[in-house]
Structures are given as C-alpha cells and as structure tokens.
C-alpha cells in the first residue's frame, strides 16, 4: 500500500520526459548540427547517413533488441555479421549462385545462434558470458579462415548482376537495405507487442523465474531468440559484404557497441522500460547523425567517440532522472 502511496503526483511530467526524451534528443542533435554545419540537413547528406550508417546498424541493433527483450545481451552479433559475410563471399567466390550464397550466409548466422543457444539454454551459461565466448571463438575462426586476417575479395569475373542487386539494388528509389530495415522493424515490432511469443519473451526478460513458474518454456524461448539474433545479424553481414564485394575480417565488431548502445538507450528511454523497436531505431539514428554531424563540423575521428559517449551518458542521466520520479 505504502508503495503505491509513495508515488507522488508530479510523475506526469517525468513520464512524458521518458516518452518523448529520445525523439527530443534526436531533434536537438539535428537542430544543433543544422545550425553548425551547412551541409548537414541536405537530402544528399541525410540519405547518405541513412543508407551508409543507419541501415546496417539498425539491422544489427534489431537483432540486439530481441536479445535485450529476453533479458540478455548478445555480444556475438558482430561475429554473426562476420561469419555471415564470410560464408556468403566464400560461396560467391567459389562460383555458387548468389541465392545459394545468401542461404550459406544465413546458415552461418543460424549456426552462431545455435551455438549460443546450446550454451545458454542447454548448459545454463548467462547470455553475456556465452556470447562473449562465441565472440572470441568467432575471432579465431576468422583468423584461421583468412590466414590471419586477410580480406577476401570477390574475383572480378564473379561479380554478377545478382550480387550487385543485393549490394546496391533499390526499389522505388529506396535502397534494399532500408527496405529490409522496414521489414524487420515491422516484423520484430509486431512480434514483441502483438504475439504470444513476444509476450513470453518479454516475461522471460523481465523476470525469468516467474516465467518458469508460470509454465513458460524458458529455455526454448531463449534458444529461439539466440538463433533469431544470429540470423538477423548475418543478414547485415551479407548486405555489407555484397556492398563492397568483399569480406573484411572482424568488420562486424564495429556494429557491436552501437547496437548495444541503441538497444539499451531505446529500452531506458521508454515509458515501460522494455526493449522496443521504435526506441532502438531512434537510438541508431541518433548515433548515426551524431557521428555524421561531428564529422561535418570537423571533429576528428577520436573525438567522435567522445561525442557518442557523452550522448549516451546524457541520455541515461535523463532516463534515470525520469525513472526516479516515475518510480
């Protein structure tokens, strides 16, 4: 009783703060950089950011969102990106049809997820540690497969129209990668909010023992999430390597921290405190425009990281201030 009573009435503004904090933050970043860098708010630049930075980051961050929703963190999303890209490029280079190569790429992602699932669901390792192990193993596998980290380029003769379509294709003027983001966002968003499975995932993420005591198949749910996360991340790896006609070892790890940042910021700055697709997407966009803006105003690469770090901290301070008041 006293808990409910201790909830003061000034919480309304704090709840609003949480609901609109992320869009407001993005608007602020856009406004500041529009004022500072003349080339920032142009169609060309915004499109560039969306296609080159946001799209792939968003796909990986959506994979991470599933992991976060189930109460874990998937540190091996970058590994799945890399292994997906490696399998895809290897198959293409060996002259396999592109469709089959995509299948192999996805298979690599499924394999990564399956390995995590084995560790998490069967052996009971916490997701953080299990996927950290997978990250290390994936790193070694790439070293072994590439003689210590040499990129694999698709031979000129194997660059087919089909490969170019995946790497550079567009529909109605919108690149394939953004269509994929739209598709995955809708799918995962509906999954989490409208389906039985999504509800079960959230229950496991919020309080796994209570889910178990309600008869939910907790292990199976965690296993499915691991596999889905690996598969989606591998999709990003396929798009990335098709875009550059090459597989670059360890390239996927660049997506790891941004995806964690986006998924957790989206979670922290939501009214319910749950992992959610709109929050993740806003987080990814925030990072993308922040980096781009800093680049345009001439900050060097090292300072860009500082900028992102400060942004994360600001967002979290905002979230905690809001949460404190909401309770």
């Amino acid at each position: 009783m006293s808990r409910a009573q201790a909830r003061p009435s000034r919480s309304i503004s704090a709840a609003e703060l949480l609901r609109f904090g992320l869009p407001a933050m993005l608007a602020l970043v856009l406004a500041v950089f529009s004022a500072l860098a003349p080339g920032f708010l142009t169609v060309a630049n915004v499109t560039g950011v969306l296609v080159n930075s946001v799209a792939l980051n968003a796909i990986v961050a959506l994979a991470m969102t599933l992991a976060v929703a189930s109460g874990g963190t998937d540190l091996s999303v970058g590994t799945a990106v890399d292994l997906g890209g490696l399998a895809f490029i290897a198959a293409v280079s060996a002259g396999q049809p592109v469709a089959l190569a995509v299948f192999f790429g996805l298979l690599a992602g499924i394999g990564t997820g399956l390995f995590n699932a084995l560790l998490i669901a069967r052996l009971g390792v916490t997701p953080f540690l299990a996927t950290l192990g997978t990250l290390f193993i994936g790193h070694s596998l790439q070293q072994l497969a590439t003689d210590g980290g040499n990129p694999v380029y698709v031979p000129a003769g194997r660059i087919t129209p089909a490969l170019a379509l995946i790497g550079h294709g567009s529909c109605l003027g919108i690149p394939l990668s953004l269509w994929l983001v739209l598709l995955l966002s809708t799918g995962i968003g509906l999954l989490l909010t409208r389906t039985r499975f999504g509800r079960e995932v959230l229950a496991v993420g919020i309080q796994a023992p209570a889910a178990l005591y309600s008869g939910l198949p907790v292990r199976r749910i965690l296993a499915l999430i691991s596999i889905a996360s690996g598969t989606i991340a591998a999709l990003a790896g396929i798009l990335l390597s098709a875009h550059v006609n090459a597989y670059v070892p360890y390239a996927g790890n660049a997506y790891l921290l941004d995806s964690i940042g986006a998924a957790f910021i989206g979670t922290a700055l939501s009214r319910t405190g749950r992992a959610n697709v709109p929050g993740t997407l806003l987080g990814v966009a925030l990072f993308g425009f922040m980096t781009n803006g800093l680049l345009l105003i001439g900050w060097n690469f090292y300072w860009q990281q500082v900028g992102t770090g400060v942004l994360i901290l600001l967002t979290l301070i905002l979230a905690f201030a809001g949460r404190e008041r909401v309770g």
């Binding site: 509800r199 959230l202 229950a203 919020i206 309080q207 023992p209 209570a210 889910a211 178990l212 005591y213 405190g273």
Partner: peptide, 13 residues
C-alpha cells in the same frame, strides 16, 4: 515476489 508474480509486468500481463 520471486516466483509467483513478475513484479515489473502489468497486472493484466
């Protein structure tokens, strides 16, 4: 509190 209910899920959920 640990097993019977999920504290941060809603009553409906």
């Amino acid at each position: 509190r640990a097993h019977g209910v999920a504290l941060d899920l809603g009553i409906r959920e």
